[in-house]
Amino acid sequence: MSKVVVDKMAMQRALTRITYEIIEKNKGVNNLVILGIKTRGVYLAKRIANRLQKLENKEVPVVQLDITKYRDDVKHTADDPKVADDDKISLDNRNVILVDDVLFTGRTIKSAFSAISELGRPDNIRLAVLIDRGHRELPIRADFVGKNIPTSRTEKIKVQVNEIDGKDSVEIIDK
């Protein structure tokens, strides 16, 4: 059984609001870099950057962040992917917005911090997530939340984005 908890309109609205909140907190888009955690976080990051661009008329860089090699639950090999697709980017003294689709235990974000450290030393890092489903195992909290969706541990949250899934939605799936 699956149930749609966020539809297309609600997802757009959430991203819109997160965008405005980023402008509020960051006082504009100066010095901003958006890091999207692969895979769906990247698309969300791009959409946020696109919205910022429309509002402020300024290009905001988006970096794809691959955290697989920092995960403590994955076996590592020598040919692990690079952390970021963009080699030129340095995060030194930048304001970083880290974007992911779902915030759950917090372990992904912890890995992302390690990955970020390879790219420089940002002034600050803020976290934006589309869904916060609770059940944190680490002291991490999001600065920008699209929607809080209380879940049981056994439920699964499925985020779909139009760019790869052909539609925008968030569903809860009963295991």
Binding site: Q12, T16, T19, Y20, R51, K54, L55
Partner: peptide, 11 residues
């Protein structure tokens, strides 16, 4: 209610 209104952020 016939005017097109553009939402800047989403176009």
């Amino acid at each position: 209610s016939n005017h097109p209104i553009r939402q800047i952020i989403t176009n």
